[in-house]
Nucleic acid binder design. Structure first.
Length: 576
RNA sequence: GCCCUCGUAGCUCAAUGGAUAGAGCAACCGGUUUCUACCCGGUUGGUUGGGGGUUCGAGUCCCUCCGAGGGCGCCA
């Protein structure tokens, strides 16, 4: 379909086979010296021990017919083949992309059921800046995966189980349930947690009650469970407020907290025992996964049951895999979790493999990411050194976005300023997070992310708004009676080719689960559009056919920007 | 001590083993300023942390050193 590189590659594969006698990847890539370049002749020639230019020449000769009407070829350098697409091919592909609800993006050839595990805040604890990246990246991946046709199950693995709940429930009782509910509903989760902690550390009687309460919770005491559920519900309600403000897909229906796996924990231990993997070490039940050592160079165990008989997060994570593979029948599990947990997950998944709980094609992928840093390049904190509350960060983003719009667009109504400002502020935060390689740390900088210049959300949103403005003037709502595209000007051609690249951008992003590839593409698209916009009058075009053609380019560009940013979870205003 | 990740222009970042390492910001020069100037074009700027190796070809793969961050048994 849309991606010309993909189309050409498919056409060249049999040619490569015919010429070289082996299966060789044509290696079709974007190029800065032609529309595309074919690099595969060099490697193929090497493989069969022939002269690369000679092989390239044979390929060009043999490909003339298959590529007729698609592209012309030229050999360059040691054996590169430069491709120039024919205008009619580009126009035809563009027309089919414009008719396609997916704008030319190929659906996945192998749809899977995919779990995306992201966000994962803790019950009765404030969401903070540490939850920003997992929530934003996970949400973007969900949207992209669904777009190409996968069945996605969102799972919010909230921390809703464990020893802290003894003290939290006792504190709830001390406060009185009504009072506690009030406190939690206004979002003062940290205050609640801190008070409980203080009492736990200073009051022996409270500490004793808390311990008994943990036992009651784990043994399934009805009243205790009811109180626990109150805490969970109050926190979930608060999380939902934050999610709505941030504009992510997560709802209460996606909650799959640690408590969900409670019933599976015993079974996990039993299964490990039966398969002979379980061992004792210092009083704990453990599994030794090969390849992991501790400080002393001795084998490092994965502890699945503590010396006191309790389970820990490793047990829960093991159960989680079992649940996702055996009950939900997922084949791909994405864990959108920070880089520091890499070793933990490696160990857990290694044990799952040893136990036979990850039969191919089922597999887990750690979609890890770096930290959010302040301008001092240290962990992002408030001026006073405190952890930044997520909700405060979101509110500030909205405030700053609205302030921008008020200053720049006084002609908009106050309501519209608020609405647009919200999109700009939230979009800026999301885009700043998504637009760099997730594995790296990034520096949080309000001024840069909110700038209308450069690789930012506001710049892309603005490019879209400019296009919508054209259609408002012409009184057409896009997509209606738009004619065939004529590629007269080089800028028109560049924009057309870029539009066809949406397909590759989305699919490439998903190959490695890196949203920044899509961001880079959208930025390039916006740049190509402004180049076109400067050089090619649309409404003032002399020829009506040219005018219609340019309107068609504008329309498709707006759609790709809208859809592309939408896949990143970023809203796009029609005017700003 | 061992393991993992990162190191690219003054700054922030790109670059599925391919040709001359690209953008944006900043700086400087210039343009248009009634299809949104919230713009566009150009110039300056690099030993891709250092050194070896593999390869026809390395920012990318391997080894080593330096630097930064993180992890390393009963928290999650």
């Amino acid at each position: 379909m849309a991606d010309p590189l993909h189309t050409v590659s498919a056409l060249l594969e049999p040619v490569f086979r015919a010429v070289t006698g082996v299966d060789a990847d044509p290696v079709v890539r974007a190029s800065d010296r032609a529309d595309a370049q074919v690099n595969g002749a060099l490697a193929a020639a090497k493989q069969v021990g022939r002269n690369p230019r000679e092989v390239a020449a044979e390929i060009v000769a043999a490909a003339a017919e298959p590529l007729r009407g698609v592209a012309t070829m030229e050999i360059a350098g040691p054996g590169f083949i430069n491709l120039t697409f024919s205008d009619s091919f580009v126009a035809g592909e563009l027309a089919s992309a414009a008719r396609d609800p997916h704008l030319g993006v190929r659906p996945t050839p192998a749809a899977e059921r995919i779990i995306v595990d992201y966000s994962a805040p803790n019950v009765a604890k404030e969401m903070h800046v540490g939850h920003l990246r997992t929530t934003i990246i996970g949400d973007a991946l969900v949207r992209m995966l669904e777009f190409v046709g996968h069945e996605v199950i969102r799972e919010n693995h909230i921390g809703d189980w464990g020893t802290p709940f003894g003290m939290l429930i006792e504190h709830l009782l001390d406060l009185g349930e009504t009072e506690a509910a009030n406190e939690l509903s206004v979002g003062d989760l940290d205050g609640f947690y801190r008070q409980a902690r203080v009492k736990f550390d200073s009051d022996d009687e409270f500490k004793q009650r808390s311990r008994l309460r943990v036992v009651a919770l784990q043994s399934g005491d009805g009243e205790t469970l009811r109180l626990w559920q109150e805490l969970v519900d109050a926190s979930a309600a608060y999380f939902n407020i934050v999610y709505r403000k941030l504009g992510v897909l997560l709802t209460s229906a996606d909650l799959a907290g640690e408590s969900s796996y409670h019933g599976l924990l015993d079974e996990v231990i039993q299964r490990l025992d039966r398969s002979g993997l379980l061992q004792q070490s210092d009083g704990a039940d453990v599994v030794f996964a090969p390849g992991f050592v501790n400080r002393e160079g001795e084998p490092l165990p994965l502890i699945v049951r503590k010396g006191n008989g309790g389970f820990n997060y490793a047990t829960s994570d093991l159960a989680c895999v079992v649940d996702r593979v055996e009950r939900l029948r997922a084949t791909l599990m994405l864990y959108v979790v920070g880089a520091p947990q890499a070793q933990h997950f490696e160990m857990v998944w290694k044990v799952c493999e040893m136990a036979g709980w990850l039969p191919p094609p089922a597999r887990c992928v750690h979609v890890q990411f770096g930290s959010v840093l302040g301008s001092d390049r240290k962990m992002f904190k408030t001026r006073s050194g405190d952890t930044v509350k997520l909700v405060e960060l979101i509110d500030e983003a909205v405030e700053r976005g609205i302030a921008q719009v008020r200053e720049r667009s006084p002609e908009l109504s106050p309501a519209e300023q608020d609405s647009v400002g919200r999109m700009i502020g939230i979009g800026a935060v999301k885009y700043a997070d998504l637009s760099t390689d997730r594995i790296k740390d990034y520096v949080f900088d309000w001024d840069r992310m909110l700038s209308f210049d450069g690789n930012t959300a506001p710049y892309l949103q603005y490019a879209h708004a400019r296009i919508r403005s054209i259609f408002r003037r012409v009184g057409v709502d896009g997509q209606t009676h738009l004619g065939e595209v004529i590629l007269g000007d080089p800028k028109e051609r560049a924009l057309a080719l870029r539009l066809l690249g949406f397909d590759q951008a989305v699919n490439e992003s998903l190959e490695r689960f890196v949203p920044h590839r899509l961001c880079t593409y959208l930025f390039d698209l916006a740049q190509d559009f402004t180049g076109f916009y400067e050089a090619c009058p649309v409404l003032r075009a002399e020829d009506e056919r040219v005018r219609q053609s340019r309107l068609a380019l504008c329309d498709l560009t707006a759609q790709v920007l809208d859809r592309g940013l939408g896949l990143l979870g970023i809203d796009v205003p029609d005017r700003m």
